[in-house]
Nucleic acid binder design. Structure first.
Lengths: 123, 123
DNA sequence: TTACTATGCTACACTTAGTGTAGGTCAACC
DNA sequence: GGTTGACCTACACTAAGTGTAGCATAGTAA
C-alpha cells in the first residue's frame, strides 16, 4: 500500500492532481488508513498509470472517465474505444495545423516589425 | 461611431469578448450614448483589429496589454516588442513539438489497440 | 517535555479567455 | 399596447488543476 505522496511520485502526478481525479470520479475513493490518509494498492497505481497514459495524449479528463468505463465494460467496447482514440488523433492534428497557422501570422508580423511598419499607429 | 454590436461584427469579436477586453484594461472604457450604450470610433475599431491581430497569434490577453502599453510608449520600445513576438514564436514552436509528441504516443496506443493489446486490463 | 519538520487532510480561491444566463432598460415597429 | 431587437450589469460557469489556510498527526531532535 502506498500513501498519496508515494503514489504521486511513482506515477508522476502531483498529489493535488490525484485528489482532483478522485473528486472527478476517475478513481474510486481511496481506502483510508487509521489516520484517514489515502492508501493505494498496486492495482490502483496501475490505474493511475493508465490515466497518465491517456492524459499525456491530451485527452480530456471527462473523456478519460468515459474511456475508463468502456475499459471496465470489456472488449465489446473496443471498436468504440478505437474511434475515440482516432478522434483524439484528429483533434491533435487540427490543433497542430492551428498552431502552424498562428505561426505564419506571427512570422508576418515579425517581418512587418523588421520593416519598421507597426500594425497600428500609437493612436 | 459604432455600437458594440457593429464593432463586434466589423472586427470579428463577440460582443462579450469586447466587454471582457474593456474590463481587463485592453481598451479604454468606451464612450457612451445617451442610452448608456457603448460607442466606438474608427480609431477604437483599429485598436480592436490590432488586438485581434495579436490574439490570433495565440498571445495571452495580459501580454497583449503589456504590448499595447509599449506601442503607446512609441518606437523606443520596438526592440522589446520584437523580443516579445519572438518569444511568442518560440512558445508556438514548443507547443507544436509538444502536440507532435502527443501524437506519437497516440499512434503507439492506436497500434496497441489494433494488436488487441489493451494498455491496462479491466482490473 | 517541548519544538520542529514532514506529511497528510479538507475546503476554498484562483487561473485563462471568454461564454451563458438572469433580469432590466430603451427605441422602433405593427 | 405588445413585441421584437439591441443594449446594459452582474454573476456563474468552463478545464485541469495549483495554491493557500487552517488543521491533525507522526517522527525526530534538544
Amino acid at each position: 500500500m502506498y500513501t498519496i505522496g508515494q503514489a504521486a511520485q511513482k506515477v508522476g502526478f502531483s498529489i493535488g492532481a490525484i485528489r482532483f481525479y478522485e473528486r472527478k470520479g476517475l478513481l474510486e475513493p481511496a481506502a483510508r488508513s487509521e489516520q484517514n490518509n489515502r492508501l493505494y494498492t498496486d492495482s490502483e497505481i496501475n490505474w493511475l498509470v493508465f490515466i497518465k497514459c491517456l492524459r499525456e495524449t491530451g485527452m480530456r479528463v471527462e473523456d478519460i472517465k468515459q474511456f475508463a468505463n468502456m475499459v471496465m465494460a470489456g472488449t465489446a467496447t473496443l471498436p468504440e474505444r478505437i474511434k475515440i482514440i482516432q478522434d483524439q488523433k484528429q483533434k491533435l492534428l487540427d490543433d497542430i495545423e492551428g498552431k502552424k497557422s498562428q505561426l505564419v501570422q506571427l512570422e508576418r508580423k515579425l517581418e512587418r516589425y523588421y520593416n519598421d511598419l507597426v500594425c497600428v499607429g500609437t493612436g
